[in-house]
Amino acid sequence: MFVSRSFQADIDLLPDMTAFLEASLEEAGAGPKESFDLQLSADEIFTNISLYAYQEKVGEVEITISSTEDAITITFTDSGTPFNPLSLPQPDITLGIDERKIGGLGIHLVRELMDTVTYQRRDEKNILFIEKHRESTRK
């Protein structure tokens, strides 16, 4: 399966993106666990791109979902400011309520939930690729 759709990078469109994702993952036959993990990861990435990629300007993000028997992958492509989220330092998740920061938490969750996360800068575009193995194929 292979589906692709472009969204305006706008946090108000997050519900639309989520609906597209839910439908596509169902079509790809994702189990509840994969589906939730991919949704959260896609949510974090879409939110980041919406808030930071284009600053004040309007821009788009293309979301491509493909699935095989073994895995489901999602690719996010935007033409915004060059930014590799994997370069962010790991957040310190042991601090107390007053010291806790939220920055970097989203990508931390993505790394925890996904089996593969890669970033490429190509043709003036940010390309972030995430992959989740199917539960049923895990040994």
Partner: peptide, 19 residues
Amino acid sequence: EYLSSAGIRTLLALAKEVK
């Protein structure tokens, strides 16, 4: 049913306000 880091941010801000 669903929580992301943005939701955690809001919960943390609320916890700080209450503190």
